[in-house]
């Protein structure tokens, strides 16, 4: 398709990106995995995806070492289509308490805090509901509270309720889907969430 989104997936060494790129391809994206800013420029994408699984501090350090910080800041400030997934969501916030205090990209207000292993099992692994809080193009064709697949030990806390598109309840409600304009991020794994996840990736392609 001539009008299909050209989507770059940033590979900064934080976890499996095979599934993300395959799921994007399955939902109409033309995908390139980019390992450095040069490859990004050469591909000239319309859409950008920051995936990631692993520790916050290491993720931030790898983005810095790879020269990604300025690019991400500019991309997001210009309100170009962006999707952060899992660690790629958490990195957009101000600070994290994972293995010491780390600074994130501060593109959204808020912090990343651990679940309490005294209250329920950590990590949260499995399917949980994302309850719609604010309507947004990402929600197109999805039910009010679809089940999506989560794997994480830390979660976002934000004072900015205007970015909270969806909430999930694990040790109380927390933001699991955030966004402003064409910039969105999700704590769950759409690439592992069967039809609901694929629908969301397709919706992202329409940004």
């Amino acid at each position: 398709m001539a009008d299909s989104p050209r989507t770059a997936v940033i590979d900064y060494g934080m976890g499996n990106i095979h599934s993300v790129s395959k799921a994007l391809e399955a939902t109409g994206h033309r995908v390139a995995i980019v390992c450095d800013p040069g490859e990004l420029a050469a591909f000239s994408p319309s859409h950008l995806v920051l995936p990631g699984v692993g520790a916050f501090g290491e993720g931030k350090a790898r983005l810095e070492a790879g020269g990604w910080i300025c690019i991400l800041e500019e991309w997001i400030r210009n309100d170009r289509p962006f999707l952060g997934i899992c660690l790629g969501m958490q990195l957009l916030f101000e600070t994290s308490q994972e293995f010491g205090t780390h600074r994130g990209l501060s593109l959204f207000q808020g912090e990343v805090v651990p679940f309490d292993p005294g209250r329920s099992k950590v990590p949260q692994i499995g399917w949980n509901e994302v309850v719609r809080k604010i309507d947004h193009p990402l929600w197109t064709g999805l039910p009010e509270a679809p089940n999506l697949y989560f794997v994480h030990s830390y979660r976002v806390r934000t004072p900015d309720i205007e970015i909270v598109l969806g909430e999930t309840d694990y040790q109380g409600p927390y933001p699991s889907m955030v966004g402003r304009g064409k910039v969105a991020a999700v704590q769950f794994h759409p690439e592992k969430s069967q039809t609901a996840g694929l629908r969301l990736l397709e919706n992202f392609g329409g940004f």
């Binding site: 399955a26 089940n147 397709e202």
Partner: peptide, 15 residues
């Protein structure tokens, strides 16, 4: 548990 069919399949619209 997840309900038997959470949302309808997307059919052949992809791929």
């Amino acid at each position: 548990v997840r309900p038997p069919m959470d949302i309808p399949s997307l059919g052949d619209s992809h791929g």
